[in-house]
Simulated assay, not measured.
Amino acid sequence: MTAATQPLLPEGFRELEPYVVDWALPTRQERYDMRLSKDMTELGVFYDAIAPRAEAAIAHLDTLDLDALPEPELRLLRLLFSMILVSYAVNVFEQPSIPDAGAAFFDTLVEPAV
């Protein structure tokens, strides 16, 4: 198998590969910026694709050392992080941004250890 044909996600999760480029981002800020760049239809499509697979993805990742994830599993973990971030927009706010927050924002100075 050549580098060009290497799978982006682990076996059993390959149907989620169309979301990797936009959503398997390394930082929370990048994921939040992506959420803000999408409309609610796009966020809903992403959420509806990932959410039903979340428990299986977590079970798969739980079998591995999180400090030494292979790239496909790291991308899967980042998709889960994005799903969590998008879930607020889809299920709570019903819009990409946080309502009634004005110009308030926060910067994440340190990413969670993975």
Rank of each mutant, 00 (worst) to 15 (best):
P112K: 07
M34E: 08
L69S: 10
T41Q: 07
M40P: 07
H60P: 07
L36E: 14
D67N: 13
L69D: 08
A4L: 14
E94W: 09
R31D: 02
L8V: 06
E111C: 12
L79K: 01
Y19A: 10
L80D: 06
R14V: 02
I84L: 13
T2S: 12
M40H: 08
A113G: 09
E94N: 14
I50Q: 07
F46S: 14
T63L: 12
P18Y: 02
P52L: 11
D48T: 11
P10I: 02
R53Q: 15
A59F: 10
E30G: 11
V92Q: 15
M34D: 03
E11K: 00
E15F: 02
R31N: 04
V86F: 01
T2A: 07
L74M: 14
V114C: 01
T5R: 09
F105Y: 04
E73K: 00
E17C: 06
D62L: 11
T5N: 13
P52I: 11
D65W: 00
D67E: 11
L76V: 10
L25Y: 01
L36S: 13
A56W: 04
M1Y: 15
I84Q: 15
T63W: 05
A54C: 11
L8T: 05
R75C: 06
E15H: 08
S97R: 07
I58S: 11
A59S: 15
Y47M: 14
A54I: 09
V45Y: 04
E94M: 09
F13D: 10
P52R: 07
P72K: 03
L8F: 07
S82T: 14
D67F: 13
T41S: 02
I98V: 11
L9I: 06
A113E: 12
A113P: 05
A3R: 03
L64E: 10
T108R: 06
N91A: 04
P99A: 03
A51D: 07
I84M: 13
S37E: 15
